[in-house]
């Protein structure tokens, strides 16, 4: 086989692969695909909220340095921001999916808000309130995940 033939076959294979990938990425999600996105977003938000609770409690115990707490909150907020974006980009294919989204979206926003409250807290009382709020949000996210196995 000539080099040119080999090259052409390789190029065709690469093109096919690329087309497949493009189709996979761009096709509208079906209900189960959307459900997976929702669960991923809920999981990420839950993990971030739970991290916030852990970090906040250690902060109240004076168990962590400020630099560490700042970084830990930052990491959690970054994760939530990514999740929020992912949820916003996905289009709900049907009514059930939309209901699910409407249940999840406020929780994700609450996580982001409460994390930033905890990160900016000036005294123990504010921090304690933020941690309690995060704990509640984490529980609700957990329930949402349990309800949609």
């Amino acid at each position: 086989m000539k080099v040119i033939h080999r090259l052409m076959i390789a190029a065709a294979a690469a093109l096919l692969l690329w087309a497949g990938l493009a189709y996979q990425v761009s096709r509208p999600p079906d209900a189960s695909g959307y459900q997976r996105v929702v669960l991923q977003v809920a999981g990420t938000a839950h993990d971030a909220a739970a991290t916030g609770v852990l970090v906040g409690r250690q902060q109240l115990h004076r168990h962590v340095t400020d630099a560490f707490a700042t970084t830990a909150y930052d990491d959690a907020m970054k994760a939530v921001a990514g999740a929020e974006q992912k949820l916003a980009l996905a289009v709900a294919p049907d009514g059930t999916s939309a209901t699910l989204r409407d249940r999840l979206a406020p929780l994700v926003q609450a996580t982001a808000r409460e994390l930033s409250d905890a990160a900016g807290a000036g005294d123990d009382a504010t921090l304690g309130a933020a941690v309690a709020a995060l704990d509640g949000t984490a529980r609700q996210l957990d329930d949402l995940i349990e309800d949609n196995p």
Partner: peptide
Amino acid sequence: MSVDALSQVALPAAVALGKLGL
């Protein structure tokens, strides 16, 4: 919960042993 940041990996040391552990 799952772990996806180094700050989380360090947390157990802080929980158990405080700033020195961290």
